[in-house]
Design a protein around this nucleic acid. Structure first.
Lengths: 352, 352
DNA sequence: GTTCATGGAGCCCGCAGGCAC
DNA sequence: TGTGCCTGCGGGCTCCATGAA
């Protein structure tokens, strides 16, 4: 375990000191300000001076002290990320994308994970970020109530709500999800299914509503019967439970709002002796890496979560610099695997 | 999209200003130093004075300026987290645990996600964290090569390697995994299997080696034949592929180093017409939330990743304050579900 | 007279902006 | 156009003085 001793608080002369602007200035034979200008890339420095300073910087291994810089500029070059649940696949990958884009743009990332979804908890997270003087924030907090809490909170810095269902391009992103859900449903109808049942996500997530809307739209446009959707909470367990509430003797096709629930659905259908896609076709949403290995491999809608994260950063940084950035939505796309087929012969089963 | 304007750099009198120490002092009718003492929890403040100051702090909504404090104390109260791949379930949950524990301890968390595992990339991540003046760091970077790169890097701050297979309690954590893998293998042997085949993780992960060691130990101790393990890369796809390299006509039990690969294994076995657990019993490792809904529900080893994250924080913060903290390992435990059973009748199959 | 709580006055941390040259 | 001097960001800390128990 290599772990250097922390330097003692009181430094005596002779100790190894982190070089500061003045040290560089001394070595280069210029003033502090000139060094500062070089570091900040100011144009008004003669090339030869610049080169001399850069050499000195390299020789000393100088790095600007961000605390000092933040203190005087009131900009931290840091953005905060508030995540409701970093362990969900989508959120985790979005987070990676955010970090990547921030690093490329020279921004640091502070992470705050909510312990719960109470407004108080969100308020506390915002306080933390304010105390860290973040320049802006991205909230990966998809629940309506939490988003409302964010909107109503008194926030001293710009922020965007991931996954883009808000702010610049919000409507675009929403309708892109609607379109994808509709395509998924159309896929089932095109296979010959009379209608498509639906296991929805939580009603208080915009993504969930977008997917349900897409499903409903497809059915309505083609004048099909719209069954009552069953609601889950994104977990496989809730997908399993949802199957118990479906009128299985009339279900031949199922659009499930995410892959985890779809896994639960597959499990529950198998437990009832129903074959997929022979008896019931199933489509998921998200395309988690495991989806190809479900039984059977799942037809689903692919989402590029990392790209969503990157675009959130673009929008936020644009706003920080008074530029309007509208990257447009990341279009999800249907991936057809083996869980969908034309409706086959229904086996006689005892529902429930 | 609520996003307040960034406050202008030059503040005129009359602007809403973030309160500072002096403001609090004025309101409470005490000196700056006294406020500072209260804020820092110095004992030499009379109770009544303290209460007055705290009331003023609350009234103004004062928060210490971390940049200023960091500048003078040379402590940022911030730790860095380096993650190799935040999208893996275990890493993501560990990260949540880290953030939670840090918040409770009053530390902020900076996240850096590696773009690749090259030593240069790790060096860059460390530079970033140094520039942020983190007090310490936790590296969720399980690959040997990367850990070596970390050890060899010239790091100016203490750090620990998650998931605890290094540093304080390193050996303990390692042996806890070995023991769990051994228990998983013993479980299969106890069911009556003559031996247990193994799909291992990447050879350059300590966790992977721990699990393989546990498996081998169990077989050796009971004088069973030790088959050659097949290696995967943690992904379901690699688990699927691994099955192709197994001598399926003699395999009745399989210990797979993680659940994702186990899912791939289940898929490949099903594709070959082999039933689980009728023909082959399968045990996984990690107990991801989906594991209960695999076909069949997977017997696996449960890991408490969030707790691992919390303990890493304990160790690191202890080290920052010159306290030695040895939380002991988080003991994984076997969860028996439906993918394991006594060896049944082998179906005649064409291997490959 | 000792302790103890508090205030006053500065200086310093490292850097950047305004202004002068 | 290029460069240098001064000041201040917000807080921690030290020295010293001052009352009060």
């Amino acid at each position: 375990m290599s772990a250097d001793e922390h330097p003692p608080a009181t430094e005596r002369p002779g100790d190894v000191r982190v070089p500061v602007l003045a040290d560089v200035a001394l070595l280069a034979g210029v003033s502090q300000q000139t060094v500062s200008r070089v570091v900040r890339g100011s144009p008004s420095v003669a090339r030869r001076t610049r080169e001399r300073v850069e050499a000195a910087i390299a020789e000393l291994g100088y790095r600007p002290n961000v605390a000092a810089r933040t203190l005087v500029t009131r900009r931290s070059h840091r953005i905060g990320v508030i995540a409701a649940d970093a362990s969900l696949y989508g959120a985790a990958v979005t987070l990676s994308g955010i970090q990547q884009a921030c690093r490329d743009a020279g921004y640091a990332v502070s992470l705050v994970v909510l312990s719960d979804l109470e407004a108080a908890s969100i308020q506390r997270a915002l306080e933390e970020l304010r105390a860290q003087y973040v320049d802006g924030a991205i909230a990966v907090v998809p629940q309506d109530a939490s988003q409302d809490a964010l909107r109503e909170a008194d926030i001293a810095f710009p922020y965007v709500l991931a996954p883009g269902l808000d702010g610049a391009g919000a409507a675009d992103a929403y309708w892109a999800e609607v379109a994808a859900a509709r395509a998924a449903t159309d896929h089932l109808l095109d296979l010959g299914h009379a209608t498509v049942h639906h296991v929805a996500g939580p009603g208080d997530w915009a993504e969930s509503r977008a997917r349900s809307t897409g499903w409903r739209t497809a059915l309505v446009e083609r004048l099909r019967f719209v069954p009552r959707p069953v609601r889950g909470d994104w977990s496989a367990a809730s997908g399993y439970a949802a199957v118990g509430e479906l009128p299985l003797d009339s279900v031949t096709a199922l659009f499930v709002a995410n892959d985890h629930m779809a896994l639960g659905v597959l499990s529950a259908l198998a437990a009832r002796g129903l074959r997929v896609p022979g008896d019931v076709s199933v489509v998921g949403y998200d395309d988690v890496p495991d989806a190809s290995f479900y039984a059977p491999p799942l037809t689903t809608v692919h989402q590029d979560f990392a790209e969503i994260g990157r675009r959130c950063v673009q929008v936020l940084l644009g706003r920080l610099h008074d530029r309007v950035v509208e990257p447009g939505p990341v279009s999800p796309r249907l991936v057809v695997r083996d869980s969908t087929a034309a409706p086959g012969t229904l086996l006689a089963v005892q529902p429930g």
